[in-house]
């Protein structure tokens, strides 16, 4: 009886499994969320602020890693989150600020149709080169969505925490809006299988060496490309980052959204 039961149970349980694409997505999210900055630093490549790739991704594991910190002790930052964290509606703005411990300017609906969907207060961990947490702070992360279901994000941090995380790259462009310097970045990520790490095609390697906005990441099943677009600025001691993955928004659209926050 017990042998039959074991066989039956094994057969039943074998039927419960992730699809290959589910597994691929899990690997991609984990790789984008954490491993990319580690690899990059290990290779003494240039450090820069990564966009919040996984916040845009379905399973919402967020990242603000790979950052160059002037202070020197923190070499990267990471944020872990799940859909359970995104529990605040716009009506709960006061609660968001209470929990975060600081306030900012959060638009309910941008003029281009992106409106506040939900928000979370996330704990950011600043880590040293050995990935030990050396500092933590709260970040407000807001998800916006338009009528077509396109999503973008807005992250707010106190600049006392993130001011030192200056992106040391030359931005794709920058503008002065009412005395505030706004930096726009458009980054192309090429995801390669892990076994290609020591065998990167020359063309890709060369471009990554010469183009600060072309970034190699490892861990995908096959070569994939994604564009991450973001704009950042500091207003009243709060650091704002508006970001999107493969978004149809133009550079001007991003500047317009930044302007709306600045003029708020």
């Amino acid at each position: 009886m017990d042998i039959d039961l074991r066989e039956e149970i094994i057969e039943s349980m074998d039927a419960i499994c992730f699809s290959p694409s589910d597994k691929k997505r899990i690997v991609a999210n984990l790789t984008q969320a954490k491993i990319t900055p580690i690899e990059r630093e290990g290779k003494n490549m240039k450090k820069w602020k990564l966009p919040k790739v996984a916040v845009i991704a379905v399973t919402v594991i967020a990242l603000t890693g790979g950052v160059a910190y002037a202070a020197g002790t923190i070499s990267s930052t990471s944020v872990g989150s799940s859909i359970f964290d995104y529990k605040y509606t716009y009506e709960k703005l006061d609660k968001i600020y209470d929990k975060a411990g600081f306030e900012g300017y959060i638009i309910e609906e941008f003029s281009n149709g992106y409106s506040f969907d939900k928000a979370a207060v996330l704990k950011v961990n600043g880590q040293d080169e050995n990935l030990n947490n050396v500092k933590s702070w709260n970040e407000i992360d807001v998800k916006y969505e338009n009528a077509q279901g396109d999503k973008i994000g807005l992250a707010l941090d106190e600049s006392i925490n993130t001011g030192e995380t200056e992106d040391d790259r030359t931005p794709s462009s920058s503008r002065d809006i009412n005395g505030i310097i706004v930096k726009y970045n458009e980054d192309e990520y090429v995801f390669l299988p892990g076994n290609m790490e020591n065998n990167v095609p020359e063309e890709i390697k060369k471009r990554a060496e010469n183009d600060e906005h072309y970034i190699i990441s490892y861990g995908s099943d096959e070569e994939e490309h994604s564009t991450f677009t973001s704009i950042n600025f500091v207003k009243d001691d709060v650091y704002y980052l508006i970001y999107g993955q493969n978004t149809t928004l133009s550079e001007d659209d991003f500047y317009s959204m930044a302007e709306e926050i600045i003029n708020e």
């Binding site: 992730f18 589910d22 899990i26 969320a33 954490k34 399973t59 594991i61 961990n125 990935l131």
Partner: peptide, 14 residues
């Protein structure tokens, strides 16, 4: 399950 999976692996990662 996918969220839980991510949570577990994130712990391993961090």
């Amino acid at each position: 399950a996918e969220d839980i999976c991510q949570d577990v692996f994130m712990k391993l990662l961090t």
